[in-house]
Design a binder for these strands. Structure first.
Lengths: 227, 227
DNA sequence: TATGGTGATAACATTTACTTAACCTCATCA
DNA sequence: TGATGAGGTTAAGTAAATGTTATCACCATA
């Protein structure tokens, strides 16, 4: 996801804060929307579907907590990250904030650098969320997509990229037969043309490293991973 | 399976975590049970048979690892998904966790959104197991096109491609007579020309493997599959 | 520039599926 | 009754698909 495509909704009743924070986030390349109260915030959130919402707790009309609750009810905004702006030490509002469905909070007074790095961290989390189950366990195998490693019987195995992708694909649905063409599509990409024996050779390496029994050949069709 | 019917057992010795995580899961519509230590967890798991168990590793009385092992021993809880709560980077506990029979782990500090999406992903896995998409059952036969296998009286039979396709075709409409030319069209493709005895030979092999009675010859016409 | 890992390929071996041919059985009907 | 046609059976040959190994080009890295 490109920064340009990331939309942040900034909600505060003080124009100064909107301007300073907004300036800093815009300078970072984010697409920034602003609202001056909860009612407006909910309206904009509904329409623009931002990735991140920064909500001041104390606001006229509708406070941040209530706005947050309303926003959380909207089905399209389930994956939006919401963070509060709260005065330091106001512990109660933090709890209430989490209760309302917030993911984090930022304490006032706001220091632009801190805020920007927090925003970056939160958006990084969004990415992590998108690829949520990066660790898969099948039988005595643990496949960790994040760290690109395999654990078999407590022992770590490092696989080259193609082998890892191939194993990863086959193990994503144990038992299911993947046709050769499907494997080529998913591991090699459908533009790439490789020779006829390429898949076999990679399967062979996996059989060597992971175990012969785990990979079954279905002649004329493809391969499957079995537990 | 409706969300309301899904039960999650949450085990942690810190009431704060039980509350925050419990709140988030309840808000998602899950039925949440809690326990404060391993002993209690095992007791509740045995009684309530939850679909998913979230276990803190570090707990007084009985730690998560041991609780997991005990739970895994219970026959009713074989299909339960167990996931650990573990401090980030505690690599050892992850390995030990998988060893004890866990399916996944969630790192602390807990971020509600991450946890919820992970829970959803895990439960999606549960659903997939239950739904049989590309599977057809006829009599004591189960034909699984995804895995390219046949199950007859609980025993797995692997068939070569042509035999599989032939059986698959005949069994798609039990009782219906398929003309020889139709079979050739569908299994062999209408450009391929094969000798007169080819179909018979394949039928013979199926009769050998699946059972003589299942395939009836209609002289001058073709074959049909009967239950 | 040397090194080592990766990934593709070619050449060959092996395995398996599929087809065929030859022969057999059985029912039907002139 | 024996000629005919349809399908059944078997083993063997062939073709197709996959397994195996060695080798090479490429790339990053020391």
């Amino acid at each position: 996801m490109n920064k340009k495509e990331i939309t942040i909704l900034l909600v505060d009743d003080e124009p100064d804060i909107l301007e300073i924070v907004g300036y800093n986030l815009t300078a970072e390349g984010y697409n920034v929307l602003t609202a001056e109260n909860g009612v407006e915030a909910v309206k904009i959130a509904k329409k623009k579907n931002p990735h991140l919402i920064i909500l001041d707790v104390m606001m006229p009309e509708m406070d941040g907590i209530e706005a947050c609750e309303q926003i959380r009810k909207l089905p399209d905004l389930q994956n939006t990250i919401i963070t509060f702006l709260t005065a330091r030490g106001e512990d109660y509002s933090q709890v209430a904030g989490f209760d309302a469905g917030a993911d984090d909070y930022i304490t006032k007074p706001i220091r632009p650098k801190v805020l920007v790095s927090k925003v970056k961290a939160l958006l990084r989390r969004l990415k992590e969320d998108e690829s949520s189950d990066n660790v898969v366990k099948i039988g005595n195998l643990v496949i960790n997509r994040d760290e690109y490693k395999i654990i078999k019987d407590k022992k770590e195995i490092i696989l080259p990229r193609k082998e890892f992708e191939l194993l990863s694909l086959l193990a994503s649905k144990p038992g299911k037969v993947f046709k050769r063409e499907d494997i080529l599509d998913k591991v090699w990409g459908n533009e790439v043309i490789v020779g006829g024996r390429t898949i076999d050779v990679h399967i062979r390496k996996l059989r060597e490293k992971i175990g012969d029994d785990s990979f079954k050949t279905i002649k004329g069709v493809g391969y499957k991973f079995v537990v």
